[in-house]
Amino acid sequence: MRTSNNLIGLVNFITFLLSIPILGGGIWLSNRANSTDCMRFLQWPLIVIGISIMVVSLAGFAGACYGNKFLMWLYLFVMFFVIAALIGFIIFAYAVTDKGSGRFVMNRRYLDYYLGDYSGWLKDRVTDDGYWGQIRSCVRDSGVCRKMGRRLHGVPETPLMFNFRRLSPVESGCCKPPTECGYTYVNETMWIPGGDMIGPNPDCMLWNNDQRLLCYQCSSCKAGVLGILKQSWRKVSVINIAVLIILVIFYVIAYAAYRNVKRMDNDEPAGEARMTKSHPSHFEI
């Protein structure tokens, strides 16, 4: 019985440690929201799941240390639903980021982003007028476009150098006009109309060199936000899948150990009764 309790305690302690990367993923997304994608609704399910695993693991660990079968049972009961919630979150994250990616541009290292390449719940969420107003303000206030400037040995970046930069989806979609619009590069966030400026893309008319406007109203900016959301969610989901597999394995181990504790508890009274019957404590005279 002591061996089973020790095993349950060890499993709960490791489960507690596994809650740290899940919680850390939620906090990382929260920090990303402050600087790039400005989406503040995905990190909370992760944070809640991480804290839940942490608290439940501590309860199970205490139950194993003090031999409290109720806390052990509570750990198994609640952890089942936490694992189910984590599975649901992973499926949801992959489902809403299934479509859409940047397009390759000839003679460019960066990608261009188009809203038409995305679809589904996440696109509807981002493009909602009321919600997009908050995202646009957040992206602008984060200074992500202002921070794009680079100098090489004190010399400003040339158009050729800019063309071969790797830009984040937000930098590409919100801080410069779409490449097909034919604007001429002045610096990272200032472009002048070229000979082939007017194209079929409505964003060509929305670009503005005013640093408060740039392309924050462009569909390409919305696509850029969707693009960086996809990158962030997929990175976190990979970690969550690895943690989920380990959690399931440890859950099965803890369940088997708990069943062993119950079986031994049920066998112990019967064993004591047999010992009492075989070795009476007094003799009849």
Rank of each mutant, 00 (worst) to 15 (best):
I91H: 01
H153W: 02
G24D: 05
C174H: 03
V186Y: 02
L46K: 02
Q211V: 12
C145T: 04
D98E: 13
R2G: 07
C221Y: 11
W207L: 02
I239L: 13
P193K: 08
I83C: 12
Q231H: 14
I249T: 14
Y118R: 01
K235I: 15
F77W: 01
P178G: 10
N240V: 01
S172E: 10
A85S: 09
R109N: 15
G194K: 09
C215F: 05
Q43P: 06
Y110Q: 10
L58W: 01
T97L: 05
Y216P: 01
K123S: 10
D112W: 07
V48W: 04
L10H: 00
L46E: 05
I198S: 14
K235A: 15
N260R: 14
P169E: 05
N34P: 00
A59Y: 06
V243P: 06
D196N: 14
V261P: 12
L247M: 11
E188S: 02
N107L: 05
A273L: 13
P178K: 14
L247V: 04
N187T: 01
D117Y: 08
Y113L: 12
F89V: 07
K176E: 01
D129Y: 13
P177N: 10
C65E: 00
F13Y: 03
V144M: 05
R151Q: 02
Q217I: 07
D141M: 06
V238M: 10
V139M: 09
G195M: 12
A64P: 06
R259P: 02
M1Q: 06
G154M: 05
P45Q: 04
I51T: 04
V96R: 04
P178T: 15
P193A: 11
D141R: 09
M205K: 13
I285C: 05
P45S: 04
R150N: 05
H153Y: 04
T15G: 15
V82S: 12
G63S: 03
A242R: 00
F41C: 00
G154V: 00
R109I: 14
K230M: 07
D129S: 15
S281L: 11
D98S: 13
A62I: 11
N208F: 00
W191Q: 02
N31W: 09
F81Q: 11
I239K: 08
L17A: 12
M1P: 14
R103M: 14
V155A: 02
R2V: 10
L160T: 01
L213Q: 11
S219Q: 15
R103C: 07
L18R: 01
G130D: 10
G100E: 04
L160Q: 04
S278I: 13
L214H: 07
E284T: 12
F77A: 10
E272R: 14
V155G: 00
L247A: 03
I245D: 08
Y110G: 11
P269K: 03
N107K: 11
I285M: 11
V243L: 09
V225T: 11
I53F: 10
Y251S: 13
F13V: 04
G26A: 07
S19H: 03
L58C: 11
A256Y: 05
V243N: 02
T158N: 00
V252Q: 00
F13A: 10
F92V: 00
G67W: 10
W44N: 07
A64T: 05
R165P: 09
G24A: 12
V170G: 02
G149M: 00
M264I: 08
F70D: 02
G271K: 13
